[in-house]
Each structure stands twice: as structure tokens, then as C-alpha cells.
Amino acid sequence: MIAALLDRLRQGDRNALARLISLAAQGEGLAELQASLAANPRSARVVAFTGSGGVGKSTLIGKLIPLVRSQGHKVAVLACDPQSPLSGGALLGDRFRMGSSTDDGVFIRSLAAQSGHGALADHLDVMIRLFETVGFEVIFLETVGAGQGDVEVRRFSDVVVLMLQPETGDDVQWEKAGILECADIVVVHKADLPTTEQTAAQVRAALDLSPARHVPVLRVSTKANTGHAELWQTIHALPLRRQHATAASLLLESAIAWFKERYQAAESRHDAELVKLIEAWQRGETPTEIAAQSLLNTLTRAKP
């Protein structure tokens, strides 16, 4: 089924693309998908937008889409919203803020993200590869309204845009570890509000304590319609991290995430081999190092 869908995808069938993204979201046929997409170059610029709920991520993406299109690039959006841990349900309400387009060069997909998964939906890497296969040059990634510690988005993207708004936090807030560290660009959105300069100055001061990394701080107002072109130019001028040599450390991060995912899958289906391994380790029969080695072997062999 996946091979047939991939054929249709390569012939430009949009419905096949939509279906394949669903399969990736559900974690079906991942190995086959990854294998068949591996040959394609990582050609897209993946730009992540993160920040708390209500800061204006969807709205800003909606304003950037026409700018990107005016330069002739095809643009895809993967917009994550939270999934209820209680009911499993989700209200995916990002796309209606992005304008309703029937432009073939724009593809917007809403995704549900489970809590505890870094404010992102699962298997985004595979979805990004699918878009790259059919020539989407820009991919916008929107996190669930992300909190201070949600830094996983960095793993999937070339550029992380952290969005803040005036009246958030004092100067100590910006000294905390986490989300500010992973930002490549900081946007103070709603820059028509009165305390914009104060917030921008505090963030600037905090960032300047680490002079090795230059992080631009931009003011953008969607209400006053200012700053969007400058933001897009700034995004476009940054190097593509996913292709860059310095991304080697991302391999370890990705490997850990992959390992964890496999472990959780094996755990939830009560994999007999895994249970045996854990029990032997708990009884002290297997030393930790050897148990870890066996765990790695077990999970590598196991079907995802």
C-alpha cells in the first residue's frame, strides 16, 4: 500500500501526500517510508515557530505564507495542537488563522501532539521528508503553545523562531535555561503594544551575555502589519542547520529519541523479550551495562 502511495506521490497526487502524512502520524509503515525517502536530499528550509499559546504563531505563519509564495517557493505548514490525555481528542485550530488558500503551492496540515512529547506531534521527520520529495522548499513547523523546557523542536528544524509578547516575565525570566537557548531568532510579536521596547531590551541583554551566538531580536506587529518582511529576510539569511556540519550532535539527540520511542512501543505491547530483560536486571542477575547492551539489541531487532 505504501509503495503505491509513494508512486502516486511522485506523480504529484496531493491526496496521496495527505494519506502518507496520516500514516506517518499514526506511526504506520515508518521503516518502509524512511527507507524509500532516504535518497532525497534534505532540500527544504524547515522553520519552527515556538512560544506560548496565544502569542500569535499561527497568525504570523499566515502572514509569512504570501511572502514566501511571492518568491516562488512552495510552502508546507505542520501545525501542532494539543491532544487531550484524558479523551484522546483534539481541537486543531491553527489553520483557520492562516488564511484560506486554494493555492497548490501551499499545504497546511494540522496535527495532534500528545502531552510529554516536546510540544510536537510524532514522526515529524518523516513528514518533512515527504514534503521534500515533492519539492516543498519551505516548511513551517508550529509547536503546541510551548513551555520553558520544550527544546525538542531544534532537532527537526534549520531555524527556530521563539515568539514572545510584551509584558511577559522580568529580566530573571530570560536567564533560565531552556527555550531561549534554542532560539535562532527571537520575535517580540504584538509590537504595537506599549511595553515592546522593554521586553525586547531585556531579552537582548540576556542574549548578549552569550556573545558567541548572535541571536537577532525582531519586533513584529501583525496588527500594524510591520516587521514581517524583515523577519523573513532574517530567516532566509541563516544557514541550514540540518545540512550543516555542526549538526553532528543532533544525531545523538535523534538516536536517543528513536531509542526511547522504540522502548515505549515495546513496553506498551508487553514485549516478552523486554519484560524478561527488565526482570533479570531488577533481580540483579544482569549487570546494568550488559542489560543496556541487550536492550539496544532487542529494540533494534524489534518491529517499531
Partner: peptide, 28 residues
């Protein structure tokens, strides 16, 4: 529908039939 465990894509007001059908397709 959300509380019943469904994934609801809210497309909102003032949609054209063309935009709704595009949303249906892309959202699978």
C-alpha cells in the same frame, strides 16, 4: 466531538466551498 476523542480541525467562518474542499483533502 473533541471530548468524544475525535480530532476536530476547525476551519472557521466565511469559507468558500473551494477552500473547504482543499482543507478536507490536505487534512486527510
Amino acid at each position: 466531538l473533541r471530548d468524544a476523542g475525535m480530532h476536530v480541525i476547525y476551519a472557521g467562518l466565511w469559507q468558500t466551498p473551494e477552500a473547504v474542499v482543499r482543507t478536507l483533502a490536505d487534512e486527510d
